[in-house]
């Protein structure tokens, strides 16, 4: 990193830290034992902070769905690019207003359109339509080999009531970095 951009990064980071309390930052392999450790850590912290039960449960659920998504779907076949091989990023922040749960993982570029379409569609639905979609999906879907039922994003939006925000940042010709943030309102 250049000197100037590093200084800017520090300043941005400082500004961010003033506004948001970062509860957890992780970069590396995301596996079930690691997911369990994050869950237990975050639960303990929320309990100490006497967060209402409903908020605790929603944060727990969003963490499970997002982290299991990364562990199941992150395209780890890019060993040639040592920066991103099999890696995920995970951040939990807390402000007076909300918890934000962010995951980032690499994926093949070819999958962007479909994922974008799914996320846009889910974001466009209200609670009632989401309930209908969830019911339809749970009845019709088959669990695929990775054990997903395509219900995760739908359920995050309907339980939190907040839109999913996302970005795709190009890594190279073949891969993109997918960043997903879900928020759980505290007020």
């Amino acid at each position: 990193m250049e000197k100037k951009s590093f200084v800017e990064f520090i300043l941005d980071f400082y500004r961010y830290m003033r506004e948001y309390e970062i509860s957890l930052v992780y970069e590396g392999e995301i596996t079930q034992p690691i997911i369990k450790a994050f869950l237990s850590l975050t639960e303990t912290k929320m309990m100490q902070q006497e967060e209402p039960g409903a908020v605790q449960r929603k944060v727990f659920h969003v963490m499970v769905e997002c982290l299991q998504n990364v562990s199941k779907y992150s395209d780890s076949s890019i060993e040639q690019n040592y920066l991103y091989a099999g890696m995920g990023v995970f951040i939990v922040t807390r402000s007076a207003k909300e918890y934000c749960i962010t995951t980032g993982n690499s994926m093949e570029k070819g999958k962007i359109d479909e994922l974008k379409k799914t996320l846009e569609y889910i974001n466009s639905l209200d609670k009632e339509a989401l309930n209908e979609l969830y019911k339809k999906q749970i009845k019709e879907s088959q669990l695929h080999e990775k054990g997903g039922a395509g219900l995760g994003f739908i359920d995050i939006k309907r339980k939190t009531g907040n839109n999913l925000s996302y970005e795709f940042m190009a890594i190279d010709d073949e891969f993109t970095f997918f960043i997903l943030t879900s928020s759980v309102s505290r007020i």
């Binding site: 749970i138 009845k139 669990l143 997903g148 039922a149 219900l151 359920d155």
Partner: peptide, 12 residues
Amino acid sequence: SYFNTASSKIIL
């Protein structure tokens, strides 16, 4: 006390 969405399909 808790189930994820993958489990919700199995519960059905």
